[in-house]
């Protein structure tokens, strides 16, 4: 397909009316980076996307919105509340291990495994049991002062253990409250950070888009063109050597026959005397002037040609010194030459 045929196919491509093979050919062309076709495609895609605005507008069922939002919540849940979800999957009592490290102390260890609601009744049961036991045996030991003293000692010890258990319980509750508050703060901070990150990423996307647009609008410098030529696989290169007139001079010539762009870079050419300039020639049956450039003292020089003549049968390239605005044939001395 010629480029004109490819351009003609773009409206059909945008509306989805091309045959598969034609679509693949156009896909390949678009991938090659043809900016005019990309631009045309964007315009025709916008036309195709405007068509539904002319349809009869039908509101979706309300249930659809609820379904999608519910699916969204289950889809993003692990990302937004990863820690919380992990906690919710843990068995009863286990979650506390995730907000406070287990203590090596034995009572603290079991108190961290047992749920809070068990701990209170356990203490109450211990107290009640102690009282019942003490009451049962009270009548038997009432007359025995030694036994009575032992019981009193046991009761004191039990009371002391009870006080210790209550103290540990309070400490554990305080620790749990602090951990819970800290967890909430951390989750809130994470949510804030995530929001900020989303905002920054969105801003970054916009800036990238602007940068792309700027790059597309920015006029290309000769250096940009050289970079493009060097990246183009079909670009061919030829080295030019200095003639008797300038033995130290040299040059390199790059040419892409597809885009007709050419680039000449020279080194050590003598400075142009007033009223003269260097000219690049393609030597076919007769010489064809490609372009002119000026060299000052001690300068390197380059010549970029946007649309060079096609020269499939060219035998050589040369650079000669000519009067400014000189004729169609080289008349001055040759300074650079390359056989192709």
């Amino acid at each position: 397909m010629t480029h004109g045929e490819l351009e003609d196919a773009i409206p059909l491509y945008a509306i989805g009316a091309l045959e598969r093979g034609e679509r693949q050919v156009l896909d390949a062309h678009l991938l090659s980076g043809c900016s005019s076709c990309h631009s045309a495609l964007r315009e025709f895609q916008a036309v195709a996307a405007a068509l539904p605005f002319g349809l009869d507008i039908v509101a979706p069922p309300r249930l659809l919105r609820a379904t999608i939002m519910a699916a969204r919540a289950s889809n993003v849940g692990p990302d937004t509340t990863g820690r919380t979800s992990e906690l919710s999957r843990l068995g009863p009592g286990k979650w506390i291990d995730h907000v406070s490290q287990p203590d090596s102390h034995s009572t603290a260890a079991w108190s961290s495994i047992l749920p809070r609601w068990i701990l209170g009744p356990a203490i109450a049961a211990a107290v009640a049991g102690g009282y019942m036991a003490w009451s049962t045996y009270d009548s038997q030991v009432a007359d025995d002062p030694i036994a009575l003293a032992q019981r009193k000692e046991q009761a004191d010890s039990a009371a002391s253990q009870l006080a210790e258990l209550q103290r540990q319980l309070e400490e554990r509750e305080q620790s749990l409250t602090r951990a819970r508050e800290e967890l909430h703060r951390s989750l809130a901070d994470m949510a804030d950070l995530k929001d900020q990150l989303i905002q920054r990423e969105a801003e970054l996307d916009v800036l990238k888009a602007r940068l792309d647009q700027y790059e597309k609008r920015r006029p290309r410098t000769p250096e940009d063109e050289l970079a493009v030529l060097l990246r183009t696989p079909t670009t061919k290169a030829a080295v030019l050597a200095g003639t008797e007139a300038a033995r130290d001079a040299s040059g390199i010539f790059l040419y892409d026959r597809r885009t007709r762009k050419a680039w000449l870079y020279t080194l050590n050419l003598p400075a142009c005397p007033a009223g003269t300039e260097y000219r690049l020639w393609i030597l076919n049956e007769k010489p064809v002037n490609v372009g002119a450039f000026h060299v000052g003292k001690g300068e390197t020089a380059h010549l970029f040609v946007q649309s060079a003549p096609d020269f499939p049968d060219t035998k050589a390239l040369s650079v000669s010194l000519e009067p400014v605005g000189g004729g169609p044939q080289p008349s001055g001395a040759l300074y650079l030459r390359s056989d192709l």
Binding site: D195, A202, V206
Partner: peptide, 11 residues
């Protein structure tokens, strides 16, 4: 585009 970008990123 920012709204779409934010939506895609979990907002």
């Amino acid at each position: 585009p920012v709204l779409l970008s934010r939506a895609v990123k979990g907002d």
